[in-house]
Write a protein that binds this DNA or RNA. Structure first.
Lengths: 213, 213
DNA sequence: TAGATTGTTAATCGATTAACAATC
DNA sequence: TAGATTGTTAATCGATTAACAATC
């Protein structure tokens, strides 16, 4: 068997894979067992050839005339995205945003578990649900002992850069950044940024363009 | 004077504009009054020509040898993105995510005000901060009376589609969707989707690719 | 077999980058 | 003036879409 390796994949393709996976879950619940690129294309408003290329880039293959086996395709995509090996993450920030992320149900299904919560200055005995809020100073030691690779950054903008640097120095390899600050930590650490201001700007501009007509 | 009209702008350009604005705020705080494309390009890792085209698409113009007047550029971009005319929004969903969005400080600076909060079944007298949580059944009437055009969707996936349809029928023109559901409401309504699963997938895949090397 | 679908190669389209003229 | 920067046109690059061969 050929060694499994991560295919090179374009950013746009990568971003579409979770959409396919979401549809696959729906279709599986509906009892379907085979799917074709046209199904995806119709449901998402994409070109069938584009879907085919995306799936191929993720290592999936189908059969002419038949399509793709739903369960097999789902497993292939889930493995490609890393949803099968359990990812453990540290969350920094116990404000409203941190709480919202902790309460989000979707992470478990996508192989992400928040194993601890930190804050710069937690109140004594502070807990969120069943989780204690630990002081940030304990993060580096725990990163090393638990080999946690993902850090979720949900702190105010002013603190974000310092906390990110602390994470990076402690050995965190990927940062999911919810603070409205661009982070540049070099090529050895992955940063994925959720930028609300950016998204809001797009919404408002498209809205203005729509109202003009 | 030529009538101000929304220039056609590519999606990638539009998404970069908020990044420029954020830098402009920083530089203004630092006392700078003139900026050049090279400054932006260096700070964001972009090509200077690309920055110039983005700014031009937003209607900004500078002077050779001098660059752009900081204050003027900031005003031009802010107007282009609609940050100057106050946008009022209704928030639906009073769970952790809704609370986090209500607590987010960045909206005011970007001309967005959440004027009311709704939930399918609010507890009697339920409040978040100073805002009462209203029953969703009151949304359509209030949309019409207050002429609110933006709806923020922060409800569970299962409810999202129905709530979105209610919003659309009531006259909401733009939906900022935080639920993990793709919405298709036709061309007369703008939907901007914050997709955590998508972002997480990108983070994890890039992380896996990094660790392979 | 005929027809539908995958997989792949070629063409098109759009965004980025490079080159250069205009200007203060 | 010389030099730096804008504005614009041309070239490149990458992603999308179209065409078509392979296959079940």
């Amino acid at each position: 068997m050929i060694a499994l390796m991560t295919h090179p994949i374009s950013m746009p393709s990568l971003r579409r894979l979770p959409l396919y996976l979401r549809l696959l879950e729906q279709w599986r619940a509906a009892g379907r067992t085979q799917v074709s690129c046209t199904h995806f294309a119709d449901a998402l408003g994409l070109d069938p050839t584009q879907v085919r290329k995306d799936l191929a880039a993720a290592g999936a293959s189908g059969r002419p005339r038949v399509g793709y086996d739903l369960k097999q395709l789902r497993d292939t995509l889930a493995r490609f995205l890393g949803w099968d090996n359990p990812g453990e993450a540290f969350l920094v920030g116990s404000g409203p945003l941190g709480r919202a992320l902790l309460a989000y149900e979707g992470f478990a299904a996508r192989g992400l578990t928040i194993v601890a919560v930190f804050d710069r200055a937690p109140a004594a005995q502070e807990r969120i649900g069943d989780k204690p809020v630990l002081p940030l100073s304990k993060l580096p030691d725990l990163v090393r002992r638990m080999h946690v690779r993902i850090g979720i950054l949900a702190v105010p903008a002013a603190e974000a850069e310092a906390v990110a640097r602390t994470m990076a120095e402690a050995g965190i390899r990927g940062i999911w950044n919810f603070a409205p600050v661009r982070l540049d930590l070099g090529p050895r650490i992955v940063v994925e940024h959720i930028d609300l201001a950016q998204s809001l700007a797009v919404l408002r501009h498209r809205l203005a363009a729509l109202e003009e007509t």
